[in-house]
Design a protein around this nucleic acid. Structure first.
Lengths: 134, 134
DNA sequence: GTTCTTGTTATACTTCTCATATAACAGATT
DNA sequence: AATCTGTTATATGAGAAGTATAACAAGAAC
């Protein structure tokens, strides 16, 4: 999986890494059960410190994306805590809708944008041989 | 408008304030043309420093939500820069969809959640006498 | 014109996070 | 035994967050 850190971004390295791994899981670039590189290897690959990678991994573990093990960093999606997930998504949508309403972006337009984003994901998934989302 | 800072939150005070103001504009609790309290008054009201409030106001100005003036902090939504808004919303949705896909939350469920959030906003708008969104 | 309030800017200080670096430990693999 | 893994501890430098005090310039009120 390709990870690239934007060193001139104002976003923390560990946050960038965390988001890119989530994106990788979402697009099936990394699949359940597959291992991520070791903290030391990945750190050297992308040019940041071991502890920064470890921080990203730890948070992803805490948020239910990874299960860490000595000798492999196994990917574990489907935390089964569906209620918490729904609550998180509702929270994120709330912020997005608020910004949309301030700019007179309509409900219909938001639904359209949501569909477009889904299509974008399907494009990436198709390229890596994953099933599409209907 | 009611603003409340969570002092035990890990979210920065100026970010909390910024988000609550955006939420206030979205729910029509604050309407276009209306003034927010002065940085000094609001700071004292919610128990934080003047500069922290000023930071929130400055960012809101930069992001096109406020137009600042000596003697009033006028609310100005509708930055007209619609393209930038759409791009921002698309970016936010991308992150939300990614998290949803990791947890097997379907496209249909996301659309439902979006409708629910809209209904939530309409409830608040109705209570403050604003028009509903259809 | 004077006074008051406004946003704005400058400076200084403390506390915390981010990122790095070096080092060591314990479990698992080879 | 040697090696690699996640994990923890400690230290350091850079920057952000938040506070504090102070001053400036433009508009409002008297």
């Amino acid at each position: 999986m390709l990870v690239r850190i934007d060193f001139s971004s104002d976003e923390a390295f560990y946050v960038q890494l965390k988001n890119q791994i989530i994106m990788g899981i979402a697009t099936s670039e990394i699949r359940e059960g597959e291992s991520l590189p070791s903290v030391r290897d990945l750190a050297e690959d992308i040019g940041i410190n071991m502890h920064t990678v470890n921080k990203a991994y730890s948070i992803l573990k805490q948020e239910g994306y990874l299960k860490l093990d000595r000798r492999k960093g196994a990917v574990v999606c489907l935390d089964a805590d569906r209620l918490r997930t729904i609550e998180e998504i509702r929270f994120l949508l709330k912020g997005t809708v608020a910004k949309a309403l301030c700019r007179d972006v309509s409900k219909a337009e938001l639904h359209e944008l949501l569909d477009e984003v889904f299509e974008e994901f399907n494009g990436i998934r198709k390229a890596s041989g994953a099933d599409s989302i209907q």
